[in-house]
Design a protein around this nucleic acid. Structure first.
Lengths: 112, 112
DNA sequence: TCTCATACCTCGAATTGCTAGGTATATGAT
DNA sequence: ATCATATACCTAGCAATTCGAGGTATGAGA
């Protein structure tokens, strides 16, 4: 039944997560706040978005998880795998492409 | 039942359509090809995406439609209303905001 | 006549993201 | 001691968007 391609603009949460984890390992709750910060409050993704994406990235092999007890609580730290770095590069390219495309469309004054 | 907000990155098809129609009135089939062109092939939205969006923009008062017979066929030409121009400005602002936010996130090398 | 391009449309499914919950521990205030 | 808040994890169910694959009809050209 010809499975549908993912929507052309999806994967931004994924992109942001991978990008943040490129610097250092982080845990979910931390990533939620961090996305708000690094995007200058422009993008705010709740835990209901982030956690499922993290799980799916782990299942697909882009991330590996590590449980680490910190002050009585247990955090789940995620870090990039080699595959994850590749995935990040791909998503970054995709993003550039559509971003440039939209920019072109918006800036052309009289595109004929 | 607390209606859900639209997904944070949606409305790009809407934005592109309104932007193209800012220049001149166009018809659906034409808009489908035009989006591919002006985005440098980066974005390709099928008729199954475009027509419903056009209809919804008309219903919401951003566009007005005009049936025009051309060479035996009938085309439906759409043009921006005043409200549509306002909507375009809003969507453009939204886009800038998130675009900038993502750019910031991607470019920060060691964001601490 | 047959095919292709034009030109409109809609339905069903897949995917996403959102809201709203739920659990549990630590910390600080009352 | 108790209550509220922040931390930290999670999932379920719904809503919105987009995608793919159709369907209809006309005109032009081979």
């Amino acid at each position: 039944m010809a499975k549908t391609n993912p929507p052309f603009m999806s994967g931004v949460p994924e992109l942001l997560l991978l990008r943040l984890l490129k610097n250092r390992e982080m845990y979910g709750y931390e990533l939620v706040r961090s996305i708000r910060e690094v995007t200058g409050e422009a993008i705010s993704l709740g835990e209901g978005v982030i956690y499922p994406v993290l799980h799916s990235l782990e299942r697909s092999g882009s991330l590996k998880a590590r449980r680490k007890p910190v002050g009585g609580r247990t955090r789940v730290y995620y870090s990039l795998t080699k595959q994850g770095r590749g995935r990040l590069a791909d998503l970054q390219d995709d993003w550039r492409r559509i971003q440039t495309g939209i920019e072109t469309a918006l800036e052309s004054p009289g595109h004929a």
